[in-house]
Amino acid sequence: MNKISLEHITHRYGDNKVLEDFSFSFEEAKTTCMIGPSGCGKTSILRLISGLEAPQKGIIKINETVATENEKILIRPHKRKIGFVFQDLALWPHFTVFRNIAFGLKGRKTEKVSHQVTQILNLFGIADKAKKYPHQLSGGQKQMVAIARSLVHQPEIFLMDEPLANIDVKVKENILAHIKLLQQEFRFTMLYVTHDHQEAMQTGDKILVMNEGVIEAAGTKKEIENSSNHFVRSFIKL
C-alpha cells in the first residue's frame, strides 16, 4: 500500500525549477532512500511532503487523502503525523535535551511526558544527557536527540534530510541500527535523503536516484545495481 503519493509535481524557487512533473509513490512501512547531486530536488520533496512548502502544480496524497493540491496546503504540517529531522538538526539551543524532546508533547500529564521522554532517551542511550544543552553535546549525541525528538511523537512518516552527514562511520551505523529497530517496532514510513550511495544501498528498501528534478532510476538495491542508465551508473560508480 502506498503511504505517500506525489502526482505531477512542479516546484520552483523563483526562476529555478527544482521539480518538473515529478510523480512517485512511497510504500508504507518501508525505507526509501533518495540520492542525487546537490540541488536535484531531494530536500524539496521532503519539505513538500511535510507541508512546509506547497508546489506550484501537482497533488500530494498521504494515506490516500489529498494533503496538498497545487498551491494549497489542505492538511497542515502538524496534522500529517510526520517526524522531520532537518539537515542542521534544528535543536532549540535554549532548551535542555529533555525540554527539546518534551516540547511538542503538550497538553498531556507531566508524568506521562516525563515517562515518554525518559523512555526514548534510554532507547538512544543518552538519558544522562537530559539536563545538558545542545551546545554541550557531541555531533553524534545531537543527532540522537534530533531523531529522538521526532520519534517521540510516534510519527507515521519519518523524514530525514541528511542528518548523519559529517559524523564518523561507527556512530552513523549505530544510529541507523537504532532507527531500523524502531521502524520494525512502529512500522513508520521512512524517507531518507543522502549524498552517500553506499549508505543508501545499506539503508533503503527502495532507492530513488534523482537528477535535476527528475527520477533517473527507482527500485531495489539490485534493480539499481543492474540499471543501464548512464547517470545512475556514473553517480554510484558501478
Partner: peptide, 14 residues
C-alpha cells in the same frame, strides 16, 4: 536564527 528551528516546531504542532 535558522528557519528550521521554527519549522520543526510547526511540524510538531506547536
Amino acid at each position: 536564527v535558522p528557519v528550521s528551528l521554527d519549522e520543526v516546531s510547526r511540524v510538531i504542532g506547536i
